[in-house]
Amino acid sequence: MEGVGINGYLAVGAVLFVCGVICMATKRNGIGVLMGVELVLNGANVNFVAFSKFGPLGLDGQIASLFVIVLAAAEAAVALAIVLNFYNNHLTIDVDRANELQG
């Protein structure tokens, strides 16, 4: 069986990461931004797990990615609550409307 080197996984991670960044940067929908965050975290996770197999990280990489997943879930819950609050106040979830702190 021919192996897929670490580079392949890292490339996938990079794509996920960049897609996440672009998603965050372009979506005006607050929940879309959240999804971008999830993608970014996921890209990082792919790297962690890849290094855990190919690199010196070992089990530590997997555990780190576990923590990332769990904390991402927590972050999603809080962010969602914030979005709901935002919606209650602005009656929309367009993040461009959240520019009260404009200089």
Partner: peptide, 17 residues
Amino acid sequence: SLGSTAGLFFMLNADFV
């Protein structure tokens, strides 16, 4: 996307993750 990533994890021997 996330489900496929899970598949990648399985391929990386990280079944629990």
